[in-house]
Write a protein that binds this DNA or RNA. Sequence first.
RNA 1: GCCGUCGUAGCUCAGUCUGGUAGAGCCCCCGACUGUUAAUCGGGUGGUCUGCGGUUCGAAUCCGCACGACGGCGCCA
Length: 490
Amino acid sequence: MPSRSAGVAARSKGRIYRTDGSCPFPSGVGRVVCRSARARTRGARLRARKGNLERPEWPRAMVAIAEILHGKHTGASVELRGWIYRTRTMGGKAFVVLRDATGVIQTTIARDKVPPEAFAAAEKALIESSVIVKGSVVADKRAPGGVEVRASDFHVVHFAEKYPIQEDQSEEFLLDVRHLWVRSQKMTTMFRIRDSTFRAVHEYFRGRGFWEVSPPMITPAGSEGGSTLFELDYFGKKAYLTQSWQLYAEALVLAMEKIYYVGPSFRAEKSRTTRHLTEYWHAEMEQAWVGMDEVLKHAEGVISHACQVVAEEHPDDVVAVGRTPEFLKAVKPPFERITYDEALKRLKAKGMELEWGKDLRTLEERALTEGKTKPVVVTHYPRVSQAFYKAKDPKDPELVLGFDVIAGDGVGEVVGGSERETDLEVIKKSLVEQGEDPKSYDWYLDSRRYGSVQHAGFGMGMERLIQWICRLDHIRDAVPFPRTPARFAP
RNA sequence: GCCGUCGUAGCUCAGUCUGGUAGAGCCCCCGACUGUUAAUCGGGUGGUCUGCGGUUCGAAUCCGCACGACGGCGCCA
């Protein structure tokens, strides 16, 4: 942890504040812009800011707030760098609540304990001003969190303008100022959990002999019939943003056998729901020589591993989002598995009739996961309206060897996977049935012409997994800058 | 693609039904306060009532059109 803090400080120094007088922008144009910006209204402030940072009596930041909150520095003198989260002043004492990337803590600045200019700065600085505080860590029941930093010096690096975000904000406004809202505790808590989740997925596959391979983002056509693609102008020709690595995975799996990838996928569907993004992060895997059961075990395994890592690395954050580490640690394989037919029976028992062949809708998914603490797996869906590459069930040609992993709390389908059809003629027929021209899939069909083998894989929505882990009401809060049908800025 | 709700100060909203000179709280500024927890108390600044058109002596308010946003369903991960 200390090395991480020091690293951040060192990077800040290198990027923003040059001591040799050079401009951080490489080109001549950048240099001009740099100087003219300085010459304008805020020039004086910028100069002051630079000068202050170079004060030798201010050594680089040493301590992360989370360390203090965990009692690591109680009784010691520390120096903190961070941003003002809240201020409360009263007479000769100012309470400045500070946040950094790791947490939030109260600092107290007493008029008679710091230099006069330091107290004046503490009184004057607005929310989100960046500051450096020196002081001693004291356990005090009166402080929020039970521990605080009593300042011996207080220095404002940059006086923030009036910050637009206060309490009681509408969802709409927070989306407008998303670039500032990412500083909130709600967002930073999610960022830490998201970080662990991504790392856990990579760990899981790499630890089991999977190769990370990279499919293209720009593609000539789609992979899943009905889904809508974002079209782009590729030097006068139509191209599309990928919605899945599916077709490429099936080509690559015959080269590397066990492969995975975590990257963006794009869907141009105008889905106005709490679990859809038009740009989302997709964790996908494909494996040769195995069938549905084997990759289903990996689906359970990777979800479980992510839950273990998050619970282990961020127990406080887990509690903050309304889960418990115990809840996540209990998410271990195997998950409950039911067939599509069994799901229909269960729904009927709950008074919900669903016509055979129809996909499970939000309503039904919620009913199936009601009261469950682990995701539920549904297998063997009807073949009608399933993607052309899914393998027919040899025991029942009306079914496919496909599965969904359905999470509770209204999140729904987190993983969709299947064994893939290996027979060239069957795939061609399916393509035609779905109104596609097999000719435009000719390169893909080569995977069934040259050494076709049994293989299977799945795709997992990273934001949906994070939404479920963090119990988020809306999937857009599982990503820093969400892209939805109505919004792609900031 | 379908259904619904909303748009008034930097923010959160009242005012619209029943037309008559634009309101509150928060933020911010000034002042008081040495243990505050979204501190409190006193004073102050701040408006293209989403836009366009119509009705009217007069429109934030009534009518029409447009735009924007949010929520739900479908589709999916």
